[in-house]
């Protein structure tokens, strides 16, 4: 069974999912981000996909279900809590139970709590390894690191630092954005003479710099919910103040000379964030380059802008 998942808010522990990384799809949906449109395309067009799970956390993702409801595949729109408190952890745990129940019903399977716990251990180990490598980014090739991260998002979730190449010298920069679907962007950054030493990406920095999970209970659903909601905030959670404060602290601590803000076109959470992020960085004299990706496979046409940015920092 192959379930395509989108976003770090979708738990990997309940069932094995395939993390959506990119697809050259035929769906061209005006005003939706290309990442969501390509996700829709793959679910519709790829016969090997049995289902899709995605968050209700931005306008593009909350509309995905409307395009997939007639596919007959397993479709689950996950309402990620927009607030972060104890009540929302309990609520999210209920959502995870509901997700499991719907999977069981649709596929006529049974998923035991022991299975979920075993998968949780594997995911926790992988996350710890990602965090350890993230701490050494100044020595590693970022493009090699992020490829290893992406590979580890699918079963068997193995992450091996020894597979990551050593990094070359470069001007230290910080990378902000949604899931780095156009992974070639990381190559372009390195080719332009820059070195990513920290990021605020859902699959990397937000996993690596995670606060201690608030929940130590035996209830595996509460634990998973708490783990996911204890991560650094995503702009879809509307905690801009906290997000910017965290990022700026890391940018300053790591001595980054600039910020690359890479987002999908029509991605409103990051567009709103950018309008305040840019002002804060301007006040601090930190240059920022916005790179807008047109879809999940776009990464190419930004080399010139990146080179120019490398020159000015």
């Amino acid at each position: 069974m192959k379930i395509l998942s989108m976003s770090g808010f979708v738990p990997e522990q309940i069932i094995d999912t395939v993390r959506f990384t990119g697809y050259e799809g035929s769906e061209r949906l005006s005003h939706y981000c290309g990442y969501a449109a390509d996700f829709i395309s793959q679910v519709k067009e790829d016969a090997s996909i049995d289902g899709a799970v995605f968050p209700k956390s931005c306008d593009s993702s909350r509309s995905i279900g409307s395009y997939l409801d007639e596919t007959g595949k397993f479709i689950y729109s996950m309402p990620v809590p927009a607030i972060r408190d104890e009540g929302s952890v309990a609520y999210f745990a209920d959502i995870l139970r509901d997700y499991k129940a719907k999977l069981e019903k649709h596929f006529n399977i049974s998923i035991s709590d022991d299975e979920i716990k075993a998968r949780d251990m594997v995911i926790s180990e992988r996350n710890a390894k990602i965090a350890a490598s993230y701490g050494k980014l100044s020595d590693l090739s970022y493009s090699s690191y992020i490829r290893e991260v992406h590979a580890s998002l699918n079963a068997p979730y193995s992450f091996d630092e020894s597979r990551i190449e050593a990094g070359k010298d470069g001007k230290p920069v910080y990378l902000v954005g949604s899931f780095l679907a156009g992974i070639e962007l990381s190559d372009c950054i390195e080719k332009a003479g820059m070195k990513v030493t920290g990021d605020d990406l859902p699959e990397s920095g937000r996993i690596a710099v995670q606060s201690e999970s608030a929940d130590s209970s035996e209830d595996i659903y509460l634990k998973i919910a708490s783990d996911i909601l204890s991560r650094r905030p995503s702009p879809t959670q509307d905690l801009f103040e906290e997000l910017i404060k965290n990022d700026v602290a890391e940018i300053e601590e790591k001595g980054c000379r600039g910020v690359i803000f890479a987002t999908q076109k029509y991605c409103e959470p990051y567009d709103y964030l950018f309008s305040v992020y840019k002002k804060v960085l301007d006040e601090k004299g930190i240059p920022v380059l916005q790179v807008q990706l047109s879809d999940s496979t776009d990464a190419g046409a930004h080399a010139f802008a990146l080179e120019a940015f490398a020159d000015i920092i």
Partner: peptide, 22 residues
């Protein structure tokens, strides 16, 4: 989801509490 994001930039501008009802 635009509205909570829009309200987040307003919160930054006015420095007043933002309450998001989910």
């Amino acid at each position: 989801n635009t509205l909570p994001a829009w309200w987040s930039i307003l919160a930054k501008r006015y420095n007043v509490p933002l309450i998001v009802l989910d």
